[in-house]
Nucleic acid binder design. Structure first.
Lengths: 352, 352
DNA sequence: CTGAAAGCGCTAACAA
DNA sequence: TTGTTAGCGCTTTCAG
């Protein structure tokens, strides 16, 4: 058996269609200035030969440079968005052949004005495409409209606004991931009480990025464990001392609560408490494979992490987006929900 | 911020070193016939400029064709090895640019003679590299020695023989995967009895491909559930009628056994029984993401599947192997254990 | 041991 | 509307 496809060249197509290579090129990329009749002949020849352009030769010859603007939130080391950034950088390596430049614009996740500023800058730049996530609903909608006017294609990464005309989306189904987390937390247990730890976010922050995931989580509990009470605890990300106090007082009052979940990406925030108050019966479930979260898994303080390969999600979007923008074709699938990984201490070793 | 590396050309290196492009090429790929002094000058220039060859141009210009021989067991639709085959085919697409041809040789998994035949054929062919799995210990060892004599690099996929000089290996750690399966089967339960369903294999079949995985499974049980009894049941893959009878009689006698595992890749073989004898308390764990196994997961008859992305494992090996063979460099890591996925009905949707 | 030059498949500018 | 042609960065003869 032999696996060995190699495609015919543009020259063969030209010969079969009785035209020159330049004409075939025009047809393939729809550069216009070709008579309908010739187009048809060339199309036939392409179909007959099963021709597809050699991307190596193509990018070698092409001097065109593409610029993609990526708008993502600012991040610090170990952050969720750092992983996305890594994915973009890695994805870029795979498409250098297409002469792509990535301009990453970082905005302040809790300040819509900073997002608007980025948008203005991007629009001035006139990039070949835009990749972003959808934090501020109004601002993103507005930006999308302006992009469409400027005929610049854009795609959503990680989350999206369904009603917009984005080219494609890559991310998980947050609702389902929440439900999966709830399942892992409660399966095979008689659970009567659950502690759901949430983050106090700055009031400027309009969007609640984890709302859907949390709803998935809560709906699962309601449907499958009707008698179960969910206690919500709020902690402040920047105040470890206060966090400790809040957790200590909560669990002092309710020592029977053995099931803890955090539907945001920072379960590591409660790791200090968990380490200092060991309890073999306790089960903790978190989300997203940040380095710090993985450490909690490894130590055994967190039992399961629901995640997906964050950088991969970004690099796959970038790759597909590039092909669509360059060849002008529509994506094979518009909404790409990536697989959710279940991570446990026992299958952690070779992740990544 | 900008992600945008573009490298200097071979011409710039040549200029800086005061030689021709051909000479730089000779140095880069160690094709010999260059004086030591020139080599040094070129090396310096390369280092100074941070040059790395443009793979597009490289493969465009190169007319050399590589042939890789892949030795894997024969398969039928839905088989484990069909997935591996798919992975190879997909991997090939990613490296067409290198002008690679894949010759897939299928041997009979229970007949060493057929494997030997393949080996002879492959050696005659003189391929640029060999990819195989290690079913028959003696035959594989013998083959490896002959490959080394012929200076043909080879790599193991899926399983390996540690003592051989293979270039690289991609697969899971079977022992760990067995332990993970045992964990998923028994966590949060008081388990006293487990049914381990095994396959009667043809006696010609020398190797027991799942031995390590089974040991991982059994060791976990022994360590973590000291009082637990593991009942081994043998079924015959080709005899569904008999399988049914065996299972029915076993579970009639021991209705208290609620935990079932199969450490081979064919948990679907018992699906008919499971469907016809529903039991909400029962927990079944299997391995490998064959299409038929996924169906059992979806229906809920199987609770967890421990697996890894089979085609991906193959395509990644192929990609890395190619680069090593072509550029002559050693792999960055010799033993590549791929991540084990935990699959459940709730995270099945977007797998693949 | 080294350089010169043709050409890989394609793009883009120019000519017709 | 179409054909021609000069490269893109690299490999690979072929001379020297």
């Amino acid at each position: 058996m032999e696996i060995n496809r190699k495609s015919p060249t543009i020259f063969e197509v030209a010969q079969l269609a009785g035209v020159s290579r330049g004409t075939v090129d025009r047809v393939v990329y729809g550069r216009g200035r070709v008579s309908q009749e010739t187009v048809n002949r060339v199309r036939d020849a392409i179909a007959k030969l099963g021709y597809s352009p050699n991307p190596n030769a193509s990018s070698l010859a092409s001097k065109k440079e593409y610029r993609f603007a990526c708008l993502i939130p600012e991040f610090t080391a170990g952050d969720y968005w750092e992983e996305i950034y890594r994915g973009l950088a890695r994805g870029q390596e795979e498409i250098v052949k297409y002469n792509i430049r990535l301009d990453v614009h970082l905005y302040n996740q809790i300040d819509p004005a900073s997002f608007r500023e980025c948008c203005d800058k991007v629009l001035e730049d006139k990039p070949s495409g835009v990749i972003m996530n959808a934090v501020f609903k109004d601002e993103v909608t507005d930006f999308a409209v302006r992009l469409e006017e400027a005929r610049i294609p854009y795609s959503f990464l990680d989350n999206k606004l369904d009603e917009l005309n984005y080219l494609m989306y890559y991310g998980v189904d947050p609702y389902k991931s929440g439900a999966l987390g709830a399942f892992l937390l409660t399966t095979r247990c008689e659970v009567e009480e659950i502690a759901l730890v949430r983050l106090v976010r700055d009031s400027l922050h309009k969007a609640d990025p984890n709302a859907q995931r949390r709803h998935g989580f809560l709906d699962y509990i309601e449907e499958n464990l009707p008698g179960c009470t969910v206690h919500t605890i709020f902690i402040e990300p920047d105040k470890p001392q206060k966090t400790r106090e809040i957790l200590e007082s909560f669990f002092r009052e309710r020592p029977g609560v053995k099931h803890i979940a955090m539907t945001n990406s920072r379960v590591w925030l409660i790791d200090e408490y968990l380490r200092n108050h060991p309890d073999p019966q306790r089960i903790v479930v978190g989300f997203d494979d940040l380095e710090k979260n993985l450490a909690c898994l490894k130590s055994g303080d967190v039992e399961f992490l629901v995640t997906r390969h964050i950088p991969q999600q970004a690099s796959r979007l970038l790759k597909e987006f590039t092909e669509c923008v360059i060849t002008g074709k529509v994506p094979s699938r518009r909404n790409n929900f990536v697989h959710m990984d279940i991570l446990h201490r026992r299958n952690l070793d070779d992740y990544r």
